[in-house]
Design a protein around this nucleic acid. Structure first.
Lengths: 178, 178
DNA sequence: TCTGGATTTCTGTAAAAACAGAAACGAGAG
DNA sequence: CTCTCGTTTCTGTTTTTACAGAAATCCAGA
């Protein structure tokens, strides 16, 4: 890791580890961390040099980050090479990430649960009833979460931030505490 | 996969895949799915037979699930063997999972960010200032999320469910829409 | 203390993922 | 058209993770 301050290095390494724990390739996460913290767009070669990984690896990882929608290509005048930059707004960035994970993983899970519930409704026997009830509970939970997310997602960022900040006041206002 | 209805099989397989995408071992996730959907506690041998995995694998996976806190050991009269059962309440279950992930991954990340911000505050130069600002934004985001979670977590389950159900009404009540 | 079932730990193997380097491909400049 | 610089795809290797089977340990009852 060349030309990085100790703090930056520590951040990039930790972010890479975080990635692996959440099912994201370590290198992908590291490149994301690097681009996020960099004040200017970087080209692939720079990323190779800084992180010490192969060119092809960087190329594939960058494509992955673009698929996630949190890294974009830009071009600088007088330079034919692609340059890459991460989204800067943290809140927006996580909004994008969560939306994408919902699309890729949560929505298909809800669909699967729907199918399983249907299927087990057609099966007979006491066991099938139990199974169906369990699956329905799971389905209800995921649907509740998904709906809530959709609603929050429709808010403008500052509005959403305010919502999350409210806390105690929020609960009191809604008379939920009792 | 012996003695399972098609719906149950589909569910267990999907849940296993979900696991891998979220950094959970496939077998661990499958065993969890099996125990979740089972109406009675199972012993290790049954799990082996049903899922077709080795005894040792089941043993380690069960320990992992117990570390997560979503599977517990029980004993049946007239049977020396350990029996295992998953939490049944879906909402509680995810509360436990999220709490654990926060403890393992989010809290250490916040600590790391704090350290990095401190370190980069001691460094000089324009670049260091930029770095620090980025890290501070990230830190603020994580702290906001963590605080909000703590608050929701303190609510009784039915209260929290009501909160998530409110949706539109909620936003209007708070005058957030504008 | 000994015994038999039950569980965990250890060790080598198999499978999967990550990765580097080379080759192929593409786009703009001359 | 072709040469050059840059990017992507392909292929084989390395590393990591998951896993099975064997060995060791544990525990209750005799």
């Amino acid at each position: 890791m060349k030309d990085l301050t100790p703090a930056t290095q520590k951040f990039i390494l930790h972010w890479g580890e975080m990635g692996t724990k959440w099912g994201i390739n370590r290198t992908v996460a590291q490149i994301h961390a690097l681009l996020f913290i960099s004040e200017r767009p970087l080209h692939a070669e720079e990323i190779c040099g800084t992180l010490g990984v192969a060119r092809s690896n960087v190329s594939n990882s960058l494509k992955e980050l673009q698929n996630w929608g949190i890294v974009k290509v830009t071009h600088l005048p007088e330079d034919r090479r692609d340059h890459f930059e991460s989204m800067k707004d943290v809140f927006e960035m996580f909004r994008v990430i969560i939306t994408e994970r919902k699309r890729r993983e949560i929505d298909p899970t809800i669909a699967m649960l729907r199918e399983c519930v249907e299927e087990s409704a057609r099966e007979t026997g006491l066991a099938a009833v139990h199974t169906r009830q369990r699956l329905e509970q799971l389905q209800a939970f995921f649907e509740l979460g998904a709906d809530f997310y959709e609603k929050v997602n429709r808010l403008e960022t500052p509005t959403a931030v305010r919502l999350f900040r409210m806390g105690d006041k929020l609960f009191r206002l809604l008379g939920l505490k009792g």
